[in-house]
Design a protein around this nucleic acid. Structure first.
Lengths: 141, 141
DNA sequence: CTTGACCTGTGTGTTACACGCATGTTGTAG
DNA sequence: CTACAACATGCGTGTAACACACAGGTCAAG
C-alpha cells in the first residue's frame, strides 16, 4: 500500500502519515524499484493505536516511548498509567488557568461596554486595557 | 537603564525583555559606547502594558499590532474589543475540548483500575489503550 | 590586572503538524 | 506512444512564547 491508501484506511491525512514516518513512529518498508514507502496491515494497526493514544492525551513522544518499550517485550502498561495520571493533574491546572482567563476576558468585555474608545496619546496606548481592574489572580500561561 | 534593571522594575525576566526587543515589541535606545541596549521609563510602561494585555489573552502578535496601530494616532480600542470577543469564543471551544479530554482520561484510569498490565505480543502493544472504550454515556457524570 | 557578574547577538529546542518546493513516478486518455 | 495529471519523494520553513546555551565583549571592584 502507498501513503494515500493507508492514510484513507486509517482515516488520517497522508501528510500526517508521512510525518509519523519521518519521526520514526512507523517504519514502512520500501519499494526497491522506486523508493516509495510500502505500508502493510501492521502499519495500519499501529496508526490506529497512535490515534487512540492521542485521544487519551498521550503526546507523540510518549507514544513513541510506549511503542519502543513494548518492542523490548516489557509491558508499557505501568508507564502508561503513570503518564496519564500526571497528565490529568497537568490538565486540571491548565483548565483552571484557562477558566480564569475566560472569566477575566468576560469581565473585561463587561466593564468595557460602558466605556468609550480612547484616542492614543503619549501616556496611553489603549485605555480599555490600561483601565481594566481585576480582583483576583493575574495568572496566565 | 540596562536589561536587568528594567526587567526587575517591570517584574519580568531579562530573557523575556530581550525577546521582546528582538521581535520589536520594545525598541530601546543604544549606548553608543558599547552597543548595550538602554531602557527608559517609557519602556517600562510599555512592558507593563504588554503584560496587562497578555493577562487578558492577547497574543504578542496582536499586542504588536495594537501598539503600532496606536502609534499612528488612531484608536486601537475597536480592534481590542474585536479580538477579545473572538478569543472568548475560541477559548470556550478549547475549554470544551480539554474538558472532554479530562473526562476521557479520568474514565480511562477508572476502567484500568480493574485491569492487569499485559505483556506485549505481536497483536497488542498495550491492552489498556487498546481496550479503552470511549462510551459517551460515561462521559455524562 | 584579574575576576566575576553582566551584556551582546545568534542559534537551537519545544508540539504536531501544514504547506511549499523541486524532482521523480505512475496511470491513463488521445 | 506520448503527454499530462495525479501521485510519490525528501527537505525546508513557519507556527507561540519563550528557555537555554554559546562565544565573546564590557564593566566595577579588589
Amino acid at each position: 500500500m502507498t501513503v494515500r491508501d493507508v492514510a484513507t484506511l486509517a482515516n488520517i491525512s497522508p501528510e500526517v502519515v508521512r510525518y509519523y514516518s519521518r519521526i520514526g513512529l512507523i517504519k514502512p518498508q520500501r519499494n526497491r524499484k522506486n523508493g516509495y514507502k510500502l505500508y502493510d496491515a501492521s502499519d495500519i494497526s499501529r496508526l490506529i493505536f497512535i490515534r487512540r493514544a492521542k485521544t487519551l492525551g498521550y503526546t507523540l513522544k510518549e507514544i513513541k516511548n510506549i511503542l519502543s518499550h513494548s518492542n523490548t517485550g516489557t509491558s508499557p502498561c505501568p508507564m502508561v498509567r503513570r503518564i496519564i495520571e500526571n497528565r490529568i493533574d497537568d490538565n486540571r491546572q491548565r483548565l483552571d488557568d484557562m477558566l480564569s482567563l475566560q472569566t477575566r476576558m468576560e469581565n473585561a468585555v463587561e466593564q468595557w461596554k460602558h466605556m468609550p474608545d480612547g484616542t492614543p496619546d503619549g501616556d496611553s496606548v489603549c485605555i480599555l486595557i490600561e483601565s481594566f481592574t481585576h480582583d483576583n489572580n493575574m495568572e496566565v500561561r
